[in-house]
Nucleic acid binder design. Structure first.
Lengths: 216, 216
DNA sequence: TAGATTGTTAATCGATTAACAATC
DNA sequence: TAGATTGTTAATCGATTAACAATC
């Protein structure tokens, strides 16, 4: 019963790999096929599946459609999860307009800001005053929020979010947020990501044998 | 000599923690102080440091200023690394205008797109035709690029980047890029991050004892 | 010196991989 | 059935933590 972040990340990857395999005409797959497509080992695939109680057919592998459905179910992609954004600056605005989500699962429903010049209450995805955040979140039962305010405001705003009942925060502010025990926080830090790239590019540059390609 | 992505990630975190400690008036720190500030164990701190040949003073700990300088040096933050962006849509444009970088290390110097309506060659950070990408990258010796084009174009554009000599790619397209052996690729997938949050929020919701707060 | 902290080695922990019996 | 693949247990690998001798 050990399913950590990495494990769920792989589940997302399997789902995407299966989509590609299906497009290629696969109706059923063996753990080896999926492993190749997702860039892991077949043991890993079977281990992950057994962790989630996903079973296949000995000798017959897994039916693609069933598998996709089961994974989507585990990831909660068969319901709709409403997501709000706080901080409609460059990044927040870009995310508000982002069209890249695969069908199902995620819908960005509103943005919030303290700057009145940014309010746009009439848009299909409205931009509302931060003051209205709590009542909106409560009456719409929002559980997930994206935090995209400047770093100085980040900690304060995260407290507002948690107080309003938000249980999952995707944080774009360059600040290490630490939340309450029942709140999940993922941090995306652009600068840290670039620092990483720079480091490994430099290493590869200096000492020749350094082929790195990573994720998570 | 095992320094992986996680290790470098922690180095960035130490640097940020040290900045906070310095603001609090610390002149020197013990591994325990830094560990607390960065949310790791003191063993981890000392192990990481020994990996990079960072030494302190037995009994006296580490001098904050020296330590910051040394870490910045390892992360390459004492030189300037020029970064380009390909794909000036919502996300690309936001990143082009992003002001959140700490001083030093990273400078976004140009954007590229195929859409002529987006060209802005006269701006301080110009937006140029994709056709000019290769010559720009070669003559300016750019090594790092951010990829922010729609998914259908991502693979093709990544090949253009690599052909031009880019060695590190920060990929925002929801596609698992796999590069050449001497090219480092980091993928940031907004949907996958949200899927993760949704999963753990749901788990926490159903079975009470699930306090998760993660990064990397 | 006595005491506290580093630097490093050994122990532990967890995650990945390999192996193989069960079985379709 | 014979052969191939799953599901799961055992072995391996790597990363984190604990412990402790060196030493300031």
């Amino acid at each position: 019963m050990v399913m950590n972040r990495k494990c769920i990340l792989r589940l997302s990857r399997y789902k995407n790999a299966l989509k590609r395999l299906k497009a290629l005409g696969f109706v059923k797959v063996f753990s080896g096929n999926l492993a190749d497509a997702a860039g892991v080992t077949s043991s890993q695939v079977r281990k992950d599946f057994s962790l989630f109680g996903i079973t296949g057919n000995r000798r017959g592998g897994y039916k693609v459609d069933e598998l996709v459905l089961r994974i989507r179910e585990i990831l909660g992609k068969n319901e709709i999860h409403k997501v709000v954004i706080i901080g409609i600056g460059n990044i927040g605005n870009a995310l508000l307009r982002y069209k890249g989500f695969e069908t199902g699962g995620i819908r960005i429903v509103a943005g919030f800001d303290i700057d009145p010049s940014r309010y746009q209450p009439e848009r299909p995805v409205p931009i509302l005053p931060l003051d209205e955040f709590r009542s909106y979140v409560e009456s719409n039962e929002i559980k997930i929020g994206i935090l995209a305010v400047p770093d100085v405001a980040a900690h304060h705003v995260s407290e507002i979010m948690i107080a309003a009942g938000i249980k999952g925060i995707l944080n774009f502010a360059p600040i290490q947020l630490r939340g309450a025990d029942d709140v999940v926080i993922s941090n995306i830090n652009l600068e840290v990501e670039l620092e990483n790239l720079i480091y490994f590019v430099n290493v590869a540059d200096k000492s020749v044998p350094a082929l790195v390609t990573e994720d998570d």
